[in-house]
Amino acid sequence: MNFLLRIWRQKNRQTPGKLVDYQVRDISPNTSFLEMLDILNEQLLDRGEEPIAFDSDCREGICGACSLTVNGEAHGPDHPGAVCELYMRKFRDGATITIEPFRVGAFPIVKDLVIDRSGLDRIVEAGGFITARAGSAPEANSILIPKHDADIAMEAAACIGCGACAAACPNGSAMLFTSAKVSHLAFLPQGHPERESRVLKMVSVMDAEGFGNCTN
């Protein structure tokens, strides 16, 4: 498969960026999107050009590091899933693919497709924890939790913190991320004592980081 890639290149956050066109050829349909970028970077290095900077870590849809906008969609067209789980068979042969970083004011560009998502970390630091006495681990069944409550908490805890919700939101709001982090503790008895102060602290930091408001 052959593709025309229009990729955002930007030296740093102070330097204006632009879309640059690259051709990739003979790409297997079973190649992942990030592997395709790896192939392109190898070609750029062979030509003595600077490779494209982009984030990735686990490449299994777990870590949330691969924050790319593909043809205007956060993580691309294969929903649900992170862009590392996207395969080139989702695109037609000869397609033009535009690749950009997440466009969120609170996610400044570091270089090319790499963004600074540390604002999400600071939201979690503000209240994404419980206060507990240190010591040996408690007996696992000392606090009984109904399965329904545990299931709801787990659904909220499944958020990988990638920031796609903010990138997809026209206001650049991180409300979905923040509410997931608030909820997965609030649904469990260990998180109940601080549930009110946790919300206030995390929302306050979310606003201070420059994320937009949710209008839903």
Rank of each mutant, 00 (worst) to 15 (best):
E49S: 10
E50W: 06
I52W: 08
A53I: 02
S56T: 11
D57S: 15
C58K: 09
C58S: 11
R59F: 08
E60H: 15
G61K: 12
I62F: 14
I62S: 11
C63L: 13
C63W: 13
G64P: 08
G64V: 06
A65C: 15
S67I: 00
S67L: 12
L68H: 03
L68K: 04
N71V: 00
E73P: 00
E73F: 06
H75T: 01
P77R: 09
D78N: 13
D78M: 11
H79Y: 13
G81M: 07
A82T: 13
C84T: 06
L86S: 03
Y87P: 01
M88N: 03
M88P: 02
M88T: 09
R89L: 08
F91D: 00
R92S: 08
R92P: 00
A95F: 02
A95T: 05
I99N: 02
I99D: 02
I99M: 05
R103P: 00
A106K: 07
A106S: 12
A106P: 01
F107V: 02
P108H: 11
I109F: 13
K111Q: 15
D112T: 04
D112W: 05
D112C: 08
V114N: 04
I115R: 10
D116Y: 04
D116E: 06
D116R: 02
D121N: 15
R122T: 10
I123A: 01
V124M: 14
V124F: 14
V124P: 03
E125C: 03
G127V: 05
G127H: 10
F129E: 01
F129K: 06
I130E: 11
T131Y: 13
R133C: 01
A134T: 11
A137K: 15
A137I: 14
P138D: 05
E139I: 11
E139D: 13
A140L: 14
N141G: 09
N141F: 13
I143T: 14
I143W: 07
K147M: 13
D149Q: 14
I152Q: 12
I152Y: 12
A156W: 09
A158P: 01
C159N: 08
I160H: 07
G161D: 04
G163L: 12
A164M: 10
A164P: 00
C165Y: 08
C165K: 05
C165F: 11
P170K: 09
P170M: 07
P170G: 08
P170E: 03
